[in-house]
Structures are given as C-alpha cells and as structure tokens.
C-alpha cells in the first residue's frame, strides 16, 4: 500500500494534519488525503484506514462538522469543515507539536 519512501503519517499527528488542511478550505476525505500528500511533496501518505476513523473522532470532539455536498466534478461527497473550537484546537495542537519536535531535536542533537 504505502510507498517505501513515503512513511505512513505518524499516529497522533494525523489529527493535526487534518485540522490544518481544513483551515484552508472545506474538503472531503479524498481531498484531504491528496492535499496532505501534495503539501508534504509526496513524503507523507495518508492511509485511508486511519483517515476515516480520525475524521469520525474529530467530529465527535466537536472540532469538525460534516455535510453532504456536490463536488467540483458534480459528484456527491461528504465535506468536512472546521468549527470554532476546531480552529482554536489547531493553534494549541500546533504549538504542542512544535514543542514536541523541539524536544526530540534537542535529544537527537545532544
């Protein structure tokens, strides 16, 4: 499934990536996967088996909401959008992530 050179998204960061993607525009599941892959220049690949459960989880936390719409290609698709608390979550989750990365860097460089 996953290309050998594109590691699966680390568990736990997927939520943050989804939220970040949705700050740009409302998007359906397939689009979110594509967008993450594009922006990461193909380094990250989202496993669909974890994408949909993650969307479900975020919706239940109240960070995103969903509705069925017609896509640009005139197909029915389920669109996800960020809620107000989701927008706040992006901020805190991002700074959490920065701290985490910084900490790992410190250890790796020591």
């Amino acid at each position: 499934m996953a290309d050998l050179t594109s590691p699966d998204v680390i568990r736990g960061t997927l939520d943050l990536l989804i939220l970040k993607t949705l700050t740009l525009e409302d998007m359906h599941g397939w689009g979110i996967g594509q967008r993450i892959q594009q922006i990461s220049r193909g380094i990250l690949e989202v496993n669909q088996g974890s994408l949909y459960p993650a969307l479900q989880r975020l919706e239940q936390r109240g960070w995103i909401a969903s509705e069925w719409r017609t896509s640009e290609l005139n197909r029915r698709a389920k669109y996800y959008r960020l809620t107000a608390s989701g927008r706040r979550a992006v901020g805190t989750e991002t700074s959490n992530w920065r701290r985490y990365v910084g900490a790992v860097d410190l250890i790796l460089e020591s």
């Binding site: 359906h28 949909y52 479900q56 239940q60 698709a77």
Partner: peptide, 23 residues
C-alpha cells in the same frame, strides 16, 4: 451514530465509494 448504527455504516459506505470514485 450510536442510535443509527447501521445508518452510520451506510453513510460511511457511501463516503468510501465517493472516495474510490475520485481516486
């Protein structure tokens, strides 16, 4: 989701189908 159970499953089936179509 809990109450609907099967309904939620159908919803997901449709969503996955649309995903496959786009791919």
């Amino acid at each position: 989701a809990i109450v609907r159970g099967r309904g939620a499953d159908r919803d997901l089936e449709e969503e996955m189908q649309s995903h496959l179509d786009m791919e």
